[in-house]
Amino acid sequence: TTVKLGDIKVTFDNPEKAKKYAQKLAKIYQLTVHVHGDTIHVK
Rank of each mutant, 00 (worst) to 15 (best):
L31V: 06
H36G: 06
T2V: 12
G6S: 04
K27G: 06
Q30A: 09
F12K: 00
I40D: 01
I40S: 02
K20R: 12
T32W: 06
K24G: 06
A26P: 00
L25R: 00
K27M: 10
K4Q: 13
K9F: 12
A22D: 00
T39P: 01
I8F: 15
V35C: 12
Q23Y: 10
K20L: 11
K9D: 06
A18P: 00
L31W: 04
Y21P: 01
K4V: 15
H36S: 13
V3I: 06
F12V: 02
K43T: 14
K17C: 15
G37W: 06
E16F: 07
L31N: 03
I40M: 05
P15G: 06
A22L: 07
V42Y: 03
Q23V: 08
Y29M: 08
D7M: 14
V35Y: 11
T39A: 05
A22E: 02
D7Q: 14
Q23P: 01
K24A: 12
A26T: 02
T2E: 04
V10W: 15
V33L: 10
T39L: 09
H41C: 14
K27D: 12
F12P: 00
Q23I: 10
N14W: 06
G37F: 06
K20E: 13
G6M: 07
N14Y: 04
E16H: 08
A22K: 01
Q23R: 08
E16I: 10
K4W: 14
D38K: 10
D13E: 10
P15F: 15
D38S: 12
D38Y: 06
V33P: 00
V33Y: 05
V35L: 09
Y21F: 13
Q30R: 07
L5K: 02
T2N: 05
A22N: 01
Q23G: 04
K27A: 10
K24N: 08
V33H: 00
H34V: 15
T32C: 14
Q30Y: 08
P15K: 09
V3F: 00
D38L: 09
K27V: 07
L25S: 00
I40Q: 01
H34T: 12
T32G: 06
I28M: 13
T32D: 07
K24H: 13
T2C: 13
K43C: 15
K27I: 09
F12W: 02
T11I: 13
V33W: 07
V42E: 01
N14H: 08
K4F: 13
Q30P: 04
K27P: 03
K24I: 13
P15I: 11
A22S: 02
Y29H: 09
T1I: 13
